[in-house]
């Protein structure tokens, strides 16, 4: 475990009789994006509150950037940026003022703060709204301001709770870029979400939680080596079916998106595609059905419905 990241072992937290976190293990190394995945009410937000020094765990061992969030909260806060799921903002303040307040609370020198604010407003594309009060912002724009707010003090650890909710497609793409850049810059990033397809494209690792327990830790490269469903579509449906039959590859019902086939690994997928093409099938689409994470997630949480 590198110094800059997060390490949590056996974290437990109950609210009265309700056990929100039962036994959570989470590692988020520096320089990687760790997805925190789980059904609603599985304890994702509670875990992030613990990591963000707001909630003391009942038991367990937690280190954020090398410090204990309970006993060394100040040191953790100086190194952690947290973007809450419920994003509130001081409505009558302008975007620039909101960020300026945050630089003040982190005791940043004025000149450095102003430069940082300009950078961040550019990063989240709010520069043209910089001097408008935040209450006129749309949900997605507020969300982007929330991201900028979490990054003001250039934290080593970034905790993003449902950062993509409310974002338009372009903003999602940009969010992905920002998150990847943070990881490249050596930050430890934790992103919670239940929109799995978007985590596929930004996460290196996934920690899957359900009912307050960590049930699986996956790296996305590993997941690619698992059997999964692919979707293949050809211009000529008949020649596709004939080729699949000839090669003894089972396939499902066809629709206008093509046919689903089960393939064991990415290597095998490449082989199947190669074979279909060499058989003269006019293939126009060949891709995994559903995200990598989605499949793992659905398989793991199947018995928990």
């Amino acid at each position: 475990m590198s110094e800059g990241g997060i390490s949590a072992r056996g974290v437990r937290r109950a609210f009265g009789n309700v056990v929100a976190l039962q036994h959570i293990d989470l590692d988020a190394p520096a320089g990687a994006v760790t997805a925190l995945v789980g059904p609603n009410g599985s304890g994702k937000t509670t875990l992030l509150l613990v990591l963000a020094t707001l909630l003391a765990p009942d038991a367990g061992h937690v280190r954020v950037a090398g410090f204990d969030p309970v006993r060394q909260a100040r040191a953790v806060r100086a190194r952690t940026g947290w973007m809450p799921d419920v994003f509130g903002t001081w409505g009558t303040l302008t975007c620039r003022e909101v960020l300026r307040v945050v630089t003040d609370t982190h005791r940043m020198p004025r000149a450095r703060a102003e430069a940082r604010i300009d950078d961040l407003l550019g990063l989240v594309h709010l520069d043209d709204l910089a001097d408008r009060p935040t209450q006129v912002l749309s949900r997605g724009q507020k969300q982007r301001l929330g991201l900028a707010r979490a990054l003001v003090h250039d934290p080593q650890v970034v905790l993003l709770d449902e950062p993509a909710s409310g974002l338009d497609p372009r903003s999602r793409v940009e969010l992905r870029g920002i998150v990847r850049d943070l990881a490249t810059a050596g930050k430890a990033v934790v992103v919670s979400s239940h929109v799995l397809s978007e985590l596929d494209e930004m996460a290196d690792r996934a920690v899957i939680v359900a009912e307050g327990c960590t049930i699986a830790v996956e790296t996305l490269d590993e997941v690619a080596e698992r059997p999964r469903t692919w979707r293949v579509r050809a211009l000529d449906e008949q020649s596709l079916v004939a080729a699949l039959d000839a090669r003894g590859i089972p396939y499902g019902e066809g629709d206008r998106y093509g046919r689903e086939i089960e393939i064991a690994s990415d290597v095998e997928a490449a082989e199947v595609l190669n074979a279909l093409v060499s058989d003269g099938v006019p293939v126009v689409a060949f891709h995994p059905a559903g995200g990598v994470l989605e499949r793992t997630y659905l398989a793991l949480t199947e018995d928990r419905r």
Binding site: R74, W90, T105
Partner: peptide, 16 residues
């Protein structure tokens, strides 16, 4: 009021 509006916790996670 701040707690309900979700603007208290972001202050608590700063160095204040």
């Amino acid at each position: 009021g701040d707690r309900t509006a979700g603007i208290l916790a972001p202050l608590q996670t700063t160095l204040l």
